[in-house]
Computed example of a mutant assay.
Amino acid sequence: MAASNFFLLAAFIVLVATQAMASDPSPLQDYLFRYDLCMFLNTVRVNGFPCKDAKDVIVDDFFLAANLDKPMDTTKSKAGSNVTLINVMKLASLNTLGISMARIDYAPKGQNPPHTHPRATEILTVLEGSLYVCFVTSNQANGENKLFTKTLKKGDGSVFPQGHIHFQFNPSYDKPAVAIAALSSQNPGAITIANTVFGSHPPISGDVLAKAFQVDKKTVDWLQAQFWENNHN
């Protein structure tokens, strides 16, 4: 009987722990303007951003005139895209709230190149046109690097898990595309793969990259000589 009770108790603990791990973390404050918290920390900043006395908070602290309904310029990017990110650097009241957003404009045949968000999962919805989207898993137990792809039409959406390499591509020859994205971090970060690998300063050793990508060093030298830019505003 004692053994039976022990196993029942163990099963209950596992169940409770599993349920606890399945819940979302909760913020410890309604919004960043908790002056008392700043005083408790003996500082005037949380996550590196300034606090404000709660009695001085106004509605405009939560407002940003971003003109996200306006088409953005894609002609200045070699990738043919423009990412307009609204994060905590542009809207301070996002601090501690764990969310940000972006408008992404794509020229015909434009792309948001392969990249990762180290601190956020992304959900993207197509507003205009269509997009070929994908993300890739890596170093799986079965040894696969599995590619997940889909062509999205207006109104369709897709999720890109945190940290996974992903991209979007506008397959149209003559029509632009527009998407809106929500990200589960106030500052999701964006690591664009090609820019990072071939456009670093100082450059990564060509011998290292040649071996990593299984190409000759002349190819690496040529890639590193290109002008690498980001498509984020």
Rank of each mutant, 00 (worst) to 15 (best):
L28M: 02
E229N: 08
L85R: 08
K175M: 14
V44Q: 15
F63D: 07
D53N: 15
K146Q: 13
N195Q: 10
P50M: 02
I180T: 07
E128Q: 13
A177N: 13
H232M: 12
P25Q: 05
M89A: 04
N170I: 11
F7V: 14
M101G: 04
F169P: 00
Q29R: 13
C51I: 08
V44F: 10
E122K: 13
S200G: 09
A20P: 00
C134T: 05
K154Q: 11
I86Q: 11
V44E: 05
Q140T: 09
F49Q: 11
S158H: 08
F33H: 07
A11E: 06
V14Q: 11
G98S: 14
Q140Y: 02
P113L: 01
N87Y: 00
W222S: 14
S23Q: 07
P71R: 12
I193D: 02
P202H: 09
I193H: 15
F160A: 10
P71T: 03
L97Q: 06
V83S: 08
S4E: 03
L32A: 09
D156H: 11
K218N: 09
G80A: 01
L152Q: 15
N142Q: 10
Q29W: 02
R45W: 02
S4W: 05
N187D: 06
P203Y: 03
P114T: 03
G199Y: 07
H115F: 02
H232P: 02
Y132P: 00
